[in-house]
């Protein structure tokens, strides 16, 4: 076996929704420690791919492997337990609770052998939560109800919760969507800083090409369910097809 471990491997993935092809013969391998961004216009199949990796959708054919284990037909919970965490385009957080409690729950779900009679607000849990809070600079929001927090903070919390489990792979679904332009870079800096602690493998879906350029080494471009380019960031962004179908820099489109 090669020295580079294929952390995640997708083989011949196909998926259709009726007549719409959401994934067509997708092959991809991702190595440990890579920062990969998935780009493509809306409906290109990025989110569908993410949903298949995390078990929310099942491919019509093809297989997905995590550390050489076939995870194609596992459910989201089991896949999460095996080491793939994700964040969401619309933050999926527990609205009436505080930031602190949200992370406490994320921490609780990551622990094994729960005691039913031991208070969850224990000292060791509190210490770990504080560590997460400071890593994501969320301290000032710790005891505020999350439904009242600004968009960027909600996004950050959503990612922080995914990270509590210490996953092998972190999938970020449009981490900067729904966040104001001036907030985007501070948010991405914050995320990058928080993620740099471990040698984490990160795959993220992103529409903002500047962010893609700044925060990822490898880019995979999707168009109509197919991968049309895969490689180093600069190379992919200069690719003709990518410019035509994804970034839209050459005004060659019919409309």
């Amino acid at each position: 076996m090669s020295k580079n471990i294929n952390l995640l491997k997708a083989e011949g993935i196909n998926k259709c929704f009726g007549a719409v092809v959401a994934a067509k013969d997708i092959n991809m391998t991702i190595q440990k420690g890579e920062r990969v961004s998935l780009i493509g216009s809306n409906g290109a199949g990025k989110t569908t791919f993410m949903n298949m990796v995390t078990g929310y959708l099942k491919p019509d054919s093809g297989n997905i492997y995590l550390k050489n284990e076939n995870i194609t037909f596992l459910n989201p919970r089991t896949i999460t337990q095996k080491g793939i965490s994700r964040s969401f385009q619309i933050p999926q957080i527990f609205e009436p609770m505080s930031t602190w409690e949200n992370i406490l729950i994320a921490l609780g779900t990551s622990q094994k052998n729960h005691s039913y009679f031991k208070n969850a607000r224990s000292k060791e849990n509190a210490d770990y939560i504080n560590e997460i809070l400071s890593r994501f600079s969320l301290h000032e929001f710790a005891h505020r109800q999350v439904s009242e927090l600004p968009g960027g903070v909600r996004k950050l919390l959503d990612i922080a919760m995914a990270l509590v489990r210490k996953p092998d792979i972190l999938l970020l679904d449009e981490p900067t969507s729904g966040v104001g332009a001036e907030e985007k870079y501070p948010l991405m800096d914050n995320i990058a800083k928080a993620l740099s602690v471990e040698n984490l493998t990160v795959i993220f879906v992103e529409h903002d090409m500047d962010i893609v350029q700044n925060y990822s080494e490898r880019v995979i471009a999707f168009y109509q369910g197919e991968i049309i380019a895969d490689g180093k960031c600069d190379k992919v962004l200069k690719d003709e097809n990518v410019q035509e179908f994804v970034t839209g820099k050459t005004p060659k489109r019919a409309k």
Binding site: I105, T109, K118, M161
Partner: peptide, 24 residues
């Protein structure tokens, strides 16, 4: 007040997220 008890409250709010955090 235990961890499973808190997870129950989380299920009430957002079941999908609880599954994606790795709990049933």
């Amino acid at each position: 007040n235990s961890t499973p008890g808190l997870i129950a409250l989380a299920v009430r709010e957002n079941e999908l997220r609880v599954e994606y955090l790795g709990s049933s």
